[in-house]
Each structure stands twice: as C-alpha cells, then as structure tokens.
Amino acid sequence: MRPSRNSVLFVLLAGLCLAQSSSQYVTPEIRRVGDKLACLCGACKNTVATCQMLECHYSLPARQRIAKMQKEATADTAIVAEFVKREGKKALAEPPNEGFGVLALATPVIAVGLGLGLIGLFIRRYRKPNAVPAMTDEEVRKYQDQIDKEFSKLD
C-alpha cells in the first residue's frame, strides 16, 4: 500500500521543515567566534562556524547562543569562556595552549626536531666525503677492459 501523493508530500515537507530561522546563517561576527569553537555533533571535525549540516543539533543552537550573547555586547573571549564552562575544554576547536593541550602542537614540532636530529646523526655516521673504495689505479686498470666491455652493452 502506497500512501497517497498528498500525504507523501506532507511527509516530505515535514522532513524538510526542520527548525530553521535566519539566525542559523553565519554572519561574519558569528563566524569570528564560531571558528574558535568545535562542533560537537560527533559527526564532523568542523567548527561551529563551518559545520554545514543543516539539521546539526549542536552548531545551530550554538550559533544562536553566540548571536544572542553578541547582542548583549559580550566580548568574544567571554563567549568562548562561556562555552568552555558549559562543555569543558572540548568546546574549543583547537587545543588550548595550556596544561595538557600544549602537547597537541608541541609534540609534532618535537617530532620534526627529533627527525632532523636523526638525519643529523645519520649524516654524521655515514658521511664520508670522497669515500671511494681504496683501489689503486693499477687495480682499476686491471678491470678496465671488463668494465668498458660490459658497459658498452648497456646503452
């Protein structure tokens, strides 16, 4: 049994008409603050400002809250602090530069440093300028014919 066309359209419209109001759109002011906040919907790695999921249950209310607080002339940092207070540090899009969060950016930098160190060690250990096998010219001449003969076959 297929529902009649009208009821199908009713379902369609009900599905499409999810809470939407002009406040979901990202104004430059909202974007400025929203870029600092992580979208915690669990399905994306975007920020509150860049989450493009229309029915996102996190970023939409978050944007509305940002807009509301901006109307009350709250400073950016205070808005961010308010989010952190409510959700914990995970509300921030990037790890904070304090406590354990420092490690987020520090570790890759340290790793690159270590890698450079390793390359340095490698170069120190294996670098031997002009290190060619100690063959006298006479020994080389002994094999010269063979070298020339085999090499001429190659090209």
Binding site: N46, G88, K89, A93, E94, G101, A104, L105
Partner: peptide, 13 residues
C-alpha cells in the same frame, strides 16, 4: 578531560 582537535588544527599543522 577530552580536548577537541578539529579541522583548523590539522590545517595549521
């Protein structure tokens, strides 16, 4: 405490 690492961080690095 869970700390988020999102797209801006990955791009920065």
């Amino acid at each position: 405490e869970k700390i988020s690492v999102d797209a801006p961080w990955f791009n920065r690095v």
